[in-house]
Write a protein that binds this DNA or RNA. Sequence first.
DNA 1: AACCGCGGTGAATCCTTAC
DNA 2: AGTAAGGATTCACCGCGGT
Lengths: 388, 388
Amino acid sequence: MGQVIETKAKGAAQVAHKGKAASRLTAEDLRKLLPLGEILDGDCIEAMRSLPDNSVDMVFADPPYNLQLGGDLNRPDGSHVDAVTDDWDHFDSFRAYDEFTRGWLAEARRVLKPNGSLWVIGSYHNIFRVGATLQDLGFWILNDIIWRKTNPMPNFRGTRFTNAHETLIWAGMGEKSRYTFNYRAMKTLNDELQMRSDWVLPICSGAERLKENGHKAHPTQKPESLLYRVMLATTNKGDVVLDPFFGTGTTGAVAKRLGREWIGCERESKYRRVATARIEKELPLDESAITTMQAKRSAPRVAFGALVEAGYVKPGTVVFDKKRRWEATVRADGSLVSNKQDGSIHALGAKLQGAPSCNGWTFWHFEDGNEIKPLDAARDLYRLATED
Amino acid sequence: MGQVIETKAKGAAQVAHKGKAASRLTAEDLRKLLPLGEILDGDCIEAMRSLPDNSVDMVFADPPYNLQLGGDLNRPDGSHVDAVTDDWDHFDSFRAYDEFTRGWLAEARRVLKPNGSLWVIGSYHNIFRVGATLQDLGFWILNDIIWRKTNPMPNFRGTRFTNAHETLIWAGMGEKSRYTFNYRAMKTLNDELQMRSDWVLPICSGAERLKENGHKAHPTQKPESLLYRVMLATTNKGDVVLDPFFGTGTTGAVAKRLGREWIGCERESKYRRVATARIEKELPLDESAITTMQAKRSAPRVAFGALVEAGYVKPGTVVFDKKRRWEATVRADGSLVSNKQDGSIHALGAKLQGAPSCNGWTFWHFEDGNEIKPLDAARDLYRLATED
DNA sequence: AACCGCGGTGAATCCTTAC
DNA sequence: AGTAAGGATTCACCGCGGT
């Protein structure tokens, strides 16, 4: 396991196993021909060519996103944002990126078993192109999955919405082909509720983030929790998982832990080295432990603006404190305005009282019929109505 | 408002207003030519042809995505695309959908102002194709937004993840083009945290869901809260919003409420009828309720020198950063001097910190009695006093 | 010991106006 | 059109060192 081999060394095997011949081999024969637990050196399309047809159960791919970043970016405190500027993420045009995408997807398709499935992760920069291309190649999308990051990087310049998620596509080989989906495992993992298409997970940081000389070893290391859920959901124990963009080997580490076989492709020797050492250290779980990891459910935070949007509090509503010392009017964005001063329910409450802070939910009240209620009461109603 | 007109009736106008001629008209002239508050009858590509170039501030589109509905597909030239339901022919079906998509997106692009923006909503069936196509046409994606449904329909057969979200794409006209984004309003709406790319909103149900004879009037009616957030974020009061797939008029209803102008296209007379009645009943909010928190950038610009001239900050005043790592003295012309270095409040702050830039208004502080205040506080006072 | 403040950082298509 | 200057802008989490 973890051994790095040269693509070239598989040259002979490639010829022997390609084409229909492979289907005449038994499953066990086929498996013996696969470089299980190895990181293939070189361009992923080339490397995949060394693998036989119809031999892999699942492909997980984290391709370059083609970010097309502009100049430097600094945080409001002046510190510099460490961007992804590596050569491997640079393409000359959408066309060039599409060609690259079509190339590796076609190889992945050849290598996949008829009932295998494909996962790809990406952002809005590339995921629409990837999705359209894989549909063109005959893949059948089963779900798109949203990874909602609990701790994304903010938008420092206040120019757009915080980019707080990434998208994964899960696809089968065709409309009629079968695929593995461990429904019960997912439901158990999710407190006996069906697992949804949005997954709330933190980004990879802390001890899990691999470092070399104090710097991150890879700019885009994915969290193990993400791969954990992917594999638990759509592979069985002993299945073969191929990752064409292996990087620092998150896929390999999680596969080993969960008792899946793995094959990686990675052209940067530095990443291969880091991944090999990482996976070496990983210990397989025993079977009983595999089902114990539980997903945390977080209490939903409700913004006052959401109540306004949803009509629980109408713009124009007059609100006031309990002693009616101050009055304010609700505006469309959930701000309050009062006599030339305005702000959020919390900020305006604080400003008017001259206090450092204020809980607007309990400070401000409104009339409901002839009752006087705090904003908090409207929030309770909203939570009841939108509960999962 | 709410009147339904025939596309054909605009035929003459169409010729007169198309092309470069439109750009020579004043904004007010142009607006008079637009069918504001009307639902254009017919295929949306045809209907959009009746609108002048560069005349619309925002397009919100909820296109059909069911690839089996061949009857919904028309080529850009208006000709009908035969339904292709054979599973072996999915490629052709995608191609027809792409053609249709390219057709309406191209018209939307022509009609949009140079600094306008486009919203499209879809699911994994179509959104990847739409996203790739709009990139190909030159649109520049600003965000992809996830509408995370609080109450999605479960996956009854337990064969996949619960499809609990839809995807929206927000795009500007090009990489360099500007666009409207009401950052402060969004931050306020989200309790003083940046609005993220994942929006948690309930699906449209209950009293909001339009019914006819006890059955839902439209199969995919969108919640008003979704349109509310879209319009509040990316349009200003009085802006023109075009919806090429108007359906039961959620876009029109919310636009009217928020003081935006709207134009719809809808080929089904039943939907036009329902939408017209619905929008008729909608009441606009009054102006003060529509007002939202304003960006600091929109406040009149004040030179620091003006504060010195007016005596709000006296020459010779010692200013310092919050941690008192640096000190400087105010000179008569509004520059600062510190230990042989000098410059504007911004330039000197940047120089001393070795930072690429610095906001001198918030960086430098001064003593006022025994309080320490940022220069920004003096600017606020000056602005209040010199308000017109 | 537990808590607090500070510094660091993460797949990011991240400014606007005047001259 | 290009350049220079003004000045607006951040959330969650982790580790460390001091109290």
